[in-house]
C-alpha cells in the first residue's frame, strides 16, 4: 500500500468499493500518512456534492409560458418564417468567408496571367503585320513596286 494507490483509487475509497482486505490496508496507510488522509478527506467532501444535488422549483409562471408556447408552435406549424429565424446572425460570418474566398480566387487568377515585357508585346501585336511582305529587303520591295508600275 502506498500513496500512488490512494491517489488512483480515491473514488473506490470514498464509495467504499474496495475489497475488505484492501480497505484494511488503506486504513492502515491513512493512519500513517497525513497527506493521503487529508487528500481522502478533501476528496470525500467534494464527492459528497453528489449526495446533495441542488433541486430547483419550476417558476410559478411555467404553465402560463408553456401554454403560450404551445399556441405559438401550433400557429407556426406551417409557417416558413421560423426556418429563417436567426439567419441575420449568420450574415457576418458568411460575408467574411465569402470576401476571403473572393480574395483568394482573385489572387490565384491574377497570379496565373503571364507577365510580358514591352518588347515581347510589340513583336506579338505589331511585327506580325509585316508577315505578308515579300521576301527580301525593304529596298527590293520598293524597287519591285516601281517595276510593276
Amino acid at each position: 500500500m502506498n500513496c500512488k494507490f490512494v491517489e488512483e483509487n480515491l473514488i473506490d475509497i470514498v464509495e467504499g468499493e474496495l475489497t475488505p482486505e484492501m480497505q484494511k490496508q488503506t486504513d492502515a496507510h491513512l493512519r500513517s500518512c497525513s497527506r493521503c488522509a487529508s487528500l481522502v478527506e478533501q476528496f470525500a467532501q467534494v464527492w459528497q456534492v453528489w449526495e446533495q444535488p441542488v433541486r430547483i422549483e419550476p417558476s410559478p409562471a411555467f404553465w402560463t409560458k408553456l401554454r403560450r408556447r404551445i399556441r405559438e408552435s401550433e400557429r407556426k406549424k406551417f409557417a416558413i418564417l421560423p426556418l429563417l429565424k436567426g439567419w441575420e446572425r449568420w450574415l457576418r460570418p458568411i460575408a467574411a468567408v465569402a470576401t476571403l474566398l473572393i480574395g483568394v480566387l482573385a489572387g490565384y487568377h491574377l497570379g496565373n496571367i503571364p507577365v510580358r515585357n514591352g518588347a515581347e508585346q510589340f513583336f506579338e501585336y505589331h511585327l506580325g503585320s509585316l508577315d505578308d511582305f515579300p521576301t527580301g529587303s525593304v529596298g527590293e520591295f520598293y524597287v519591285s513596286l516601281g517595276q510593276n508600275n
Binding site: P53, R55, I56, F62, W63
Partner: peptide, 24 residues
C-alpha cells in the same frame, strides 16, 4: 413531471433560466 424535467435540464445545463427554457 415538471420538477423532474426542470431539474434534469438544470443539472445538465447548470443554469436556471436555460433549464426552464429547455424544459418547456
Amino acid at each position: 413531471y415538471q420538477a423532474l424535467v426542470v431539474n434534469t435540464c438544470y443539472n445538465l445545463l447548470g443554469n436556471r433560466q436555460d433549464a426552464e427554457d429547455v424544459a418547456q
